[in-house]
């Protein structure tokens, strides 16, 4: 489904993403792991059009989508979440999810100013869907609260729900359980399983090893911007180079 070919991103003298290539199969959870500073988030930012790449390319179902801006990627079925939350704090939880439905809603100036019937009808329909999504992940009770007053765990979930609202085929999750307690982590893991069961492909950037090993179909390991290894969780677990990078083995 997604293919990354020799993708490179440099910041001055530092090559944060160095000649990375891998393929993500449809319906898979493909994890990207690596120690802090390995370039995982830079990789996501380069794929999702936040950064402009310095080499290589990204292909979606045979189409070149290298350096497509984030907002246009949504219309091609790719949506992402952020390691450091990007939630609109001044809006309610429900409004944040409704923002996720944006691509399906009319933003024409005249229908808006004159409050067209269709606009109101769509708004009501999608509000119901938003409430349904919030119910699925168990944060429906917070729907009408301002996001800035809520806990980190709820907002992490909210961000995933908002991304789901865009109706993605490929979801890029950048450390979805960072900073969550074990119970919340388990809940998010469960959510990711449900998402994939709904035939959404997931690229999962994560630190939590147990979760990655449990969930992933394939794992790519990054180290100092380079690809260190790739394989099934079983292969990665037993790869001596990976063990050394993570645990700092003997030389």
């Amino acid at each position: 489904m997604l293919e990354i070919r020799n993708l490179t991103k440099r910041f001055g003298g530092l090559t944060a993403v160095d000649d990375i290539s891998f393929r993500v199969a449809k319906g898979h959870i493909h994890a990207v792991i690596g120690p802090n500073g390995a370039g995982k988030t830079t990789l996501v930012n380069t794929i999702s059009g936040v950064y402009r790449s310095d080499g290589g390319s990204v292909w979606l179902d045979g189409a070149d989508i290298t350096d497509t801006p984030t907002d246009q990627l949504v219309y091609r079925g790719i949506c992402r979440t952020f390691q450091n939350l990007e939630i609109c704090g001044g809006m309610t939880v429900l409004e944040n999810v409704m923002l996720g439905f944006d691509r399906y809603l009319s933003k024409g100036l005249w229908p808006t100013l004159l409050r067209s019937r269709r606009l109101l009808e769509d708004e009501r329909r999608y509000t119901e869907r938003a409430m349904h999504l919030l119910g699925l992940i168990g944060i429906r009770d917070y729907a009408h609260q301002e996001a800035r007053n809520l806990s980190y765990g709820i907002l992490k979930k909210l961000e995933i729900v908002r991304a789901l609202a865009t109706g993605p085929e490929l979801l890029l999750l950048d450390e979805p359980v960072a900073g969550l307690n074990p119970r919340e982590t388990a809940e998010v893991a469960e959510l990711i399983r449900t998402i994939v069961a709904d035939e959404v492909t997931v690229i999962l950037i994560e630190h939590d090893m147990r979760m990655v090993m449990d969930l992933s179909d394939r794992i790519t390991v990054m180290h100092f911007g380079k690809k260190l290894a790739e394989g099934t969780p079983e292969e990665i677990r037993n790869d001596p180079e990976v063990i050394e990078a993570y645990l700092g083995g003997r030389r």
């Binding site: 999702s48 936040v50 801006p69 984030t70 907002d71 246009q72 949504v74 219309y75 949506c79 992402r80 979440t81 952020f82 990007e86 939630i87 609109c88 704090g89 001044g90 809006m91 944040n96 923002l99 996720g100 944006d102 691509r103 908002r162 991304a163 609202a165 865009t166």
Partner: peptide, 13 residues
């Protein structure tokens, strides 16, 4: 007002 990345990530130009 709150975040330009949030709307951009859901398809807003």
């Amino acid at each position: 007002h709150d975040s330009e990345r949030a709307p951009a990530s859901v398809g807003v130009n």
